[in-house]
């Protein structure tokens, strides 16, 4: 059993050595896909989360909508989109962005909702405009919680970006689909193991970033 595993991994390593150009291209594609999805999710959901935290209407509608979207698996989303956007990387990016959005939105909403009321009152009482409060006080204090959401998204998206290979958009998923097609685990591992390693590395980097940006010094 262990012998077989070691043998398979060795085969994977040889496969990797023989196709380094293709492999590194796939890594770059993978990171670009995931990066775009996470970036879009941040761009859309941080402002939306600020809005939902301050408006009852937005909170009721948007939060429910997003929570509804969460229950649809990414693979299903992907296949639902293909008829409209075709077998393109746009389809993959849309599916991944939808996957990345809920944690960012929910955490941004929570971050702004749980700011200490006394701090906000002090800011108002000293004559900060709503915009100044947001930039100088609320946002810096909300960053750690928002970043927690980004971390959750990043892990989900990097793992799920393997789906892009289904629509021919590259990424490390190509080895997984190829491995399935040829019924060859050693090829599958060439995709799966790097994805796991990248996920861990990004998680670690974001945790470090969170620590550096932690606004409250004790």
């Amino acid at each position: 059993m262990v012998d077989t595993l070691i043998h398979t991994l060795w085969q994977s390593y040889l496969y990797f050595l023989n196709r380094q150009t293709e492999f590194w291209g796939a890594v770059v594609d993978h990171l670009i896909l995931a990066g775009i999805a996470i970036g879009l999710a941040i761009l859309v959901c941080v402002p939306l989360g600020i809005w939902t935290s301050k408006s009852r209407f937005a909170s009721l509608t948007l939060m429910n909508l997003v929570n509804g979207l969460r229950v649809i698996p990414s693979l299903a989303v992907l296949f639902l989109i293909i008829p409209y956007l075709g077998l393109t990387s746009t389809s993959a990016i849309v599916a991944l962005t939808i996957l990345a959005m809920p944690p960012v939105l929910i955490n941004t909403d929570a971050a702004f909702r749980t700011l200490e009321p006394a701090i906000i009152e002090a800011a108002r009482g000293m004559g900060m405009s709503a915009f100044q409060r947001l930039i100088k006080v609320e946002f810096p204090l909300a960053i750690p919680v928002i970043l927690t959401g980004v971390r959750i998204s990043a892990v989900d998206v990097i793992a799920s970006a393997t789906l892009a290979a289904f629509v021919g958009s590259g990424g490390l998923g190509i080895y997984i689909t190829r491995g399935f097609a040829l019924y060859d685990y050693s090829i599958l591992f060439v995709g799966a193991i790097p994805v796991a390693l990248i996920t861990l590395a990004v998680e670690g980097l974001l945790a470090l970033l969170q620590k550096t940006l932690q606004p409250i010094k004790t």
């Binding site: 006394a118 701090i119 009152e121 004559g127 100088k136 006080v137 204090l141 606004p215 409250i216 010094k217």
Partner: peptide, 14 residues
């Protein structure tokens, strides 16, 4: 133009 002091102080922790 008005000084404002509250019970919870409300200093900006960052």
């Amino acid at each position: 133009n008005i000084g404002y002091v509250i019970q919870q102080v409300g200093l900006f922790p960052h």
